[in-house]
Simulated assay, not measured.
Amino acid sequence: MIRKVRGKVEKLTPDEIIIESGNMFFESIPTYRILERCEIGKEYVFETHLEISEWNIAFYMFYDDIERNIFLNLKKVSKLGGKSALKILQKIDVEQLINMIASQDVKGLSKLPGIGKKTAERIINELGENLETLPVSGESTKLKDALEALEALGFEKNKVFNVLKEIDIEKLTLENIITQALKKL
């Protein structure tokens, strides 16, 4: 099975990406990160996922392993398939998506294509418990830890998340993030 594809970006639009790898061309729908970080004519190594069923063959391409893992986790949510998971990853960066799930932001998730309130709640319920297994950056880990600490102190999760969005958490320690958030709460 193909897990990674190394190749030169031949075409890149919001509707498709074409990669030339040797004598083969791979076509897929680009994710948010691919659209933001890739340039035509440059070579990249993409993570991939191939699905074969009796009705369809689908080839998905991702900028990195984080996107691929989030995609695979989204597909596990009941009533959410590969096409819907890919539509989500086209419109939002995985870090933002993880933050929405961690903060239980039903309203924000509902704004994504093909996601209504009930599906947003299912995503939060089914992936929120397994958030520890989702790959996240240091910034998202600090955000999650700060959310949990402030929630344990009795603050409402959505209010805490909105306050934390205003703080530059990348440059601060966890203790400083919590201290600044407490001042604003």
Rank of each mutant, 00 (worst) to 15 (best):
Glu54Asn: 11
Glu54Ser: 10
Glu54Ile: 04
Asn56Thr: 13
Ile57Leu: 15
Ile57Ser: 12
Ile57Val: 15
Ala58Leu: 14
Phe59Arg: 06
Phe59Leu: 12
Tyr60Phe: 15
Tyr60Asp: 06
Met61His: 07
Met61Leu: 13
Phe62Glu: 00
Tyr63Gln: 10
Tyr63Phe: 15
Asp64Trp: 06
Ile66Arg: 10
Arg68Tyr: 07
Arg68Leu: 05
Asn69Trp: 09
Ile70Thr: 04
Ile70Met: 09
Ile70Ser: 03
Ile70His: 01
Phe71Met: 04
Leu72Arg: 08
Leu72Ile: 09
Asn73Ile: 09
Asn73Arg: 15
Asn73Cys: 11
Leu74Asp: 00
Leu74Ile: 05
Lys75Thr: 11
Lys76Ser: 15
Lys76His: 09
Val77Thr: 03
Ser78Cys: 10
Lys79Gly: 10
Leu80Glu: 04
Leu80Arg: 03
Leu80Phe: 07
Gly81Arg: 03
Gly81Thr: 05
Gly82Val: 02
Gly82Thr: 03
Lys83Asp: 09
Lys83Pro: 08
Ser84Lys: 14
Ser84Thr: 15
Leu86Lys: 01
Leu86Thr: 00
Lys87Asn: 14
Lys87Gly: 06
Ile88His: 01
Ile88Val: 12
Ile88Ala: 02
Ile88Tyr: 05
Leu89Gly: 01
Leu89His: 02
Gln90Thr: 10
Lys91Phe: 12
Ile92Cys: 08
Ile92Glu: 02
Ile92His: 00
Ile92Ser: 06
Ile92Arg: 04
Asp93Trp: 04
Val94Tyr: 11
Gln96Ala: 14
Leu97Ser: 01
Leu97Glu: 04
